[in-house]
Design a protein around this nucleic acid. Structure first.
Lengths: 156, 156
DNA sequence: TGCAAATGGTTTCATATGAAACTATAACGT
DNA sequence: ACGTTATAGTTTCATATGAAACCATTTGCA
């Protein structure tokens, strides 16, 4: 019975997954494609990784965060944040001080250099996002928004 | 002028990205969360990685593919496929022969052991997908389908 | 107080990953 | 035929990543 498996019978007997219609797979491909396209824009130019850029993006919005808070907001783990910060501080893009009331905690923020870079990269990132969304019409964009909201874990 | 940056003024001056509304970022989080949830199901139990599982999934559908064809269908690069195959063959889950007319090419397929595992994992994966999609109603699911089709590069 | 448990952050170690170099075979052009 | 170029697949090397161990400080509470 289990002889050489040929395409047709195998399908019939075993109900294999169709990856191209499998949501997790499709999301993974789409997400990687989009992120990589955007990252290509700035990685070579500024020698910065996606994780580093994400750290900079949250610090642009929330000045004075601790490393743990950055990790929360970026959904990265603390090791990744620690390493990204080490590089960013070394490159003079992020400043790190020690919290007055708690010497374990760091107080992070963009430096002037960091801001300068941010102000160049942020518009590029937004432009790329617009390019992607341009493939959809207004109605589809609205649904996408709504669908992502429902699927997302939704943090407090 | 560039003194201590505080949250509010920074935002006003520099228009920072709001990651939580930035499509690439949201997709990345969502995709990782979902893939990881599913992977947790089988990784420990079967000592297999996501990439290995994807290779098995395409071989379940298309018997006799070459490594390059597997790479195409999984959107993985050939190094990743080569390594996944090495492990899968060693574990006795995939069979590898040499193509009759082209000795460079391999002819791949699931073994009986591979099929047995496939037939346990595939339903689990599908069940997880259903759990995710259960958060959406029928209309939203239809839109998601349509939106993914439009955003996806669409391979021949 | 003073000591156990918790927390912020870094380092270590083992594994994962991709680009480029490499080997073997096949296809092409003359 | 025969050398050049292309292709399938593997190996190497350098980098990325996460879990767990680790250090320093703070918190909780007897």
């Amino acid at each position: 019975m289990p002889a050489k498996r040929q395409p047709a019978p195998a399908t019939a007997e075993h109900a294999p997954l169709q990856l191209e219609h499998f949501l997790p797979y499709r999301l993974s491909i789409l997400s990687n494609t989009i992120s990589q396209t955007i990252a290509d824009d700035y990685q070579r130019r500024y020698d910065i990784s996606v994780t580093e850029w994400r750290v900079m993006a949250v610090l642009a919005r929330f000045d004075g965060l601790s490393a743990r808070e950055v990790a929360e907001r970026t959904a990265m783990d603390k090791v990744a944040v620690s390493r990204a910060l080490a590089r960013l501080v070394a490159a003079g893009r992020v400043s790190r001080a020690i919290h007055d009331d708690d010497k374990r905690r760091s107080v992070l923020g963009l430096t002037e250099t960091g801001w300068a870079m941010h102000d160049e990269v942020a518009p590029m990132a937004r432009a790329r996002e617009r390019e992607v969304l341009a493939k959809l019409d207004a109605e589809e964009r609205a649904w996408l928004e709504r669908i992502l909201d429902k699927l997302q874990p939704a943090k407090p």
